[in-house]
Design a protein around this nucleic acid. Sequence first.
DNA 1: ACTATACCTACTGCTATAATGGGAATAGTA
DNA 2: TACTATTCCCATTATAGCAGTAGGTATAGT
Lengths: 143, 143
Amino acid sequence: MKLSTRTRYAMRAMLELANGYGKGPLQTRVIAKNQDISTKYLEQIMSALKSTGLIRSQRGAKGGYILANPPEKIKLSDVFDVFEGPVVTVECVANENYCSRSADCVAKQVWGEVQRAVRNVLQSTTLQDVIDKAKITKSDYQI
Amino acid sequence: MKLSTRTRYAMRAMLELANGYGKGPLQTRVIAKNQDISTKYLEQIMSALKSTGLIRSQRGAKGGYILANPPEKIKLSDVFDVFEGPVVTVECVANENYCSRSADCVAKQVWGEVQRAVRNVLQSTTLQDVIDKAKITKSDYQI
DNA sequence: ACTATACCTACTGCTATAATGGGAATAGTA
DNA sequence: TACTATTCCCATTATAGCAGTAGGTATAGT
């Protein structure tokens, strides 16, 4: 159950944007360099983040991306869901009609609990929470 | 972050074995039929489960598989780990030297929390727990 | 005009997944 | 002994998704 690099890159990019929130747009190129990510690949990721409404863009020179909402309003689950779907698990948890065993299936319940555990962590934490945590634990922090 | 079908099949097969624990070996063919899984594919999965020591086999006619330990001694995480590795997340969480940002990386901490949440669910539940739950909620249960 | 940026589309190599298939070794049974 | 049901072992395949590359267009600032 690995995370895709897309999700990891997306999270790191969003944390960069959160960190620079209020200081104008941040460019893909800059984020890519800071995070040591392929610029071209990150471009696609930013595009996806934009299409879900998490970030806004400014085209042209001095353009870039900014968060669509303040970092304390963006939950980690918002970012996570862009590429990992509605979280973890199994088709049968989401779709009641997926399989004939559905009603009685206990395996389904197990995966449902795992799903809730993950969601609980990601929904109860905002980008701002993460930034704050970093500032507390490290003066010389990095994201 | 989908689960592989291997893991889902493995879990269902283990639950079948748990359900029939003490009644002699259960055959791949039977499990496959009950669970509507390709027999040949399940064969490989059973082989992997055996090689990790979770189940034992009896070859030849009237053979099959049995749990290596009673169902109350087998945690769901034992089954999960066979195919999903040491759980969720990201190389940098497991390997301290994976990336130069490691020491200060807050993204890493996020994924670490997710990992712990998942492990917590899977380590605190045994096969027997799941069977019991099914018996309570349904007289006509199915796994 | 020039430049830096977002934006768009297509392609590529790679790997893992989810099977399928054939057959050998083993053990019970008639 | 012959027969049969099983585990066991190995190879092959089709597909899909991931991660990344590439080239170009539209837009905005200077």
